[in-house]
């Protein structure tokens, strides 16, 4: 039991389990999944589908945070990527043509890579603190997205493009496959090459890493590029799901949800060890929470409050200090004199 509690996935899984249990008790048909027209429908599928962009962004964020960095610009990259893709598709004569959609996707992904490179350059090359360096793109990027869409919502009518975010493959939403693929890429990159080791090393002790001969700048730049790419793909999923791009609101506050997912998943903001699977669970917790809040009909004006209370509870459960304080209180509850004694012994 004790060893199980020490496992990094223990608390995140507990929280997710508790949320699902709550749903089971509150509305038993939460778990029902039906097959209709070759598609699976149900709340669980919805959570996976709508949670896909967040999972993607959070995976990229995990690697950035592992280097003791942070990327606030992911929400803006999400918006830009969707806007660029929709803009180029909307200008085509045959919006469903595969060539046009591919060009649109590739150009928005290429731009996401460049934006990630920009962040990485500011952090590693120019030595700006990550929170400031990425704040620049967070603000400027939102502006760029609004420029691209001219402040309007661009709608597209392309069944090909729509497939990415709303289509389904083997009865499951296609977005799940994209996310799984990116998760596997991230796992392979970090666990099958030495990149993961270098990321943890740079995040844990940059000075020692430099003296060990690790090219820390290269490592840092690559994680920001990867994070940019993840956000770009998330932007495509989001805009394709609704067949439109909204420069003002797409991906708004995504960076905060993503950071939360990473932290809930067990990766420390101090850098070092990172847990990709933990992050995935963390993102799913957040998505489940959002879905639950909508489902049980919390009045819209207090949803944010409810969400933050749950998040606070999750963070407290995960805090070692908090847990040990509670445990000490609990254990010494019957012995008012004990504290006094302990103080003297110290």
């Amino acid at each position: 039991m004790n060893r199980m509690m020490k496992h990094y996935l223990f608390w995140p899984l507990c929280v997710l389990g508790a949320l699902l249990l709550f749903n089971l008790l509150y509305s038993p048909d939460f778990f029902s999944i039906v097959l209709r027209d070759g598609h699976l429908y149900g709340s669980l599928i919805d959570i996976l589908n709508f949670g896909a962009p967040l999972v993607l962004v959070a995976i990229g964020m995990t690697l950035v945070i592992a280097t003791k960095g942070i990327d606030l610009s992911v929400g803006s990259i999400v918006a830009i990527s969707g806007a660029i893709a929709c803009l180029s598709i909307s200008k085509g004569s045959d919006q469903s043509s595969l060539g046009l959609v591919m060009t649109a996707i590739l150009s928005s992904l290429a731009l996401s890579l460049v934006l990630g490179l920009w962040n990485g350059f500011l952090v590693a090359g120019a030595g700006i603190q990550p929170i400031i360096a990425t704040l620049i793109l967070m603000v400027a990027g939102r502006g760029i997205a609004q420029l691209v869409t001219s402040g309007q919502i661009i709608t597209v009518d392309s069944s090909t493009y729509e497939y990415i975010g709303a289509g389904s493959l083997a009865t499951l939403p296609f977005s799940i496959f994209i996310v799984t693929a990116m998760l596997i890429v991230a796992l392979l990159l970090t666990r099958k090459t030495a990149l993961g080791l270098f990321i943890e090393s740079v995040g844990s002790n940059p000075t020692a890493s430099r003296l060990t001969g690790i090219r820390s700048n290269m490592v840092i730049i690559s994680v920001y590029i990867f994070c940019g790419l993840c956000a770009g793909i998330a932007g495509l999923l989001l805009s394709s799901n609704v067949s439109s791009a909204d420069g003002n609101n797409a991906g708004l506050w995504y960076e905060l949800d993503a950071i939360l997912a990473v932290v809930i998943g067990g990766t420390s903001l101090n850098g070092g060890r990172f847990y990709l699977m933990g992050t995935v669970i963390g993102a799913l917790i957040i998505q489940t929470l959002t879905t639950t809040i909508y489902m049980i009909g919390v009045p819209p004006e207090i949803t944010l409050v409810v969400k933050s209370v749950v998040v606070l509870a999750v963070c407290l459960i995960q805090s070692e200090t908090f847990r040990s304080t509670i445990m000490t209180r609990w254990k010494t509850r019957n012995y008012p004199g004990e504290k006094e004694v302990v103080r003297h012994v110290r």
Binding site: A194, F198, E200, A208, L211, G272
Partner: peptide, 21 residues
């Protein structure tokens, strides 16, 4: 401050310089 990488295991610390090269 300049030697060990706190969060890593003994094995990872041992192979780090070789892997970096």
């Amino acid at each position: 401050a300049e030697g060990i990488i706190d969060d890593l295991t003994v094995r990872e610390n041992i192979i780090l310089a070789l892997q970096a090269s």
